[in-house]
Design a protein around this nucleic acid. Structure first.
Lengths: 134, 134
DNA sequence: CAGCATCCTCAAAGATACTG
DNA sequence: CAGTATCTTTGAGGATGCTG
């Protein structure tokens, strides 16, 4: 009788790997920016602070729920700041923090890679699909 | 009577924006690499070709379904190649294509940003949560 | 060895309506 | 203006068993 079954061993290996991934900085970053709205909000704020309603119209596809939710999480992570001006009606401005500005760089690099190489990816995809259909 | 209701106008704006996002190269790239397994597979192949079973054990947390699914999509996009050696039993090797190698660069840049700044993000998060709890 | 087929779950995103 | 609250949907991903 083995001390543990194959299934148990596999589960343990998985748990360890999951724990490793949970602390991996790169994974944490990916979890952050892989979100559809995160990069849109950050690049929207590139030119300077925007109000809630401006963000909503700039990023036309976003629901209020997702916008608020994403803004809150970005604020929590120190990437954007939220400034309330208690006038009537109230005014709320969102802006990039220095940390938020610094993340523009990797995002820009990714954008450049995308613009250079995505056509090749799309072409490969189409070629592959054509071959598949034959 | 307006030619279109506010809801219709909003829907139209959203559709247009969705269409724009659907062709945006940066979004396409993000959709590609935001996947949990994609970056893990690509970085696993950094050192040279690996067999299916090697990938499965290297990336301990992956199920066969997700591994196969991700490999297929990466092959389709021309980022990795799949080489079958018809021995008994069969042997299948996966390797990065030149396109696949080129994507290592933005991934590495992201990784570097992550290693430099994720501690600050984590700290901001904790500070924020402490403030919240008070 | 290297998969494919099937069923299932659960969390994230969307739609809708209301409020300080 | 700048949100909150609630319900519903959808699909990525996991578990399991089978095959050339």
């Amino acid at each position: 009788m083995p001390t543990k079954t194959a299934a148990q061993a596999r589960q343990q290996a998985k748990d360890q790997y999951d724990a490793y991934l949970a602390t991996c900085p790169s994974r944490l970053l990916l979890d952050r920016i892989s979100n559809k709205w995160v990069t849109l909000i950050i690049t929207a704020l590139r030119g300077g602070p925007l109000r809630y309603s401006q963000l909503r119209t700039t990023i036309a596809g976003v629901s209020e729920k997702m916008l608020t939710q994403t803004l809150r999480s970005l604020e929590r992570d120190g990437l954007i700041s939220r400034t309330v001006t208690p006038s009537v009606p109230v005014r709320v401005d969102y802006a990039l923090t220095p940390l938020g500005v610094s993340i523009l760089e990797p995002i820009t690099i990714m954008k450049e890679w995308a613009e250079q190489h995505m056509p090749a990816v799309t072409a490969a995809r189409q070629a592959h699909d054509v071959r598949e259909a034959s």
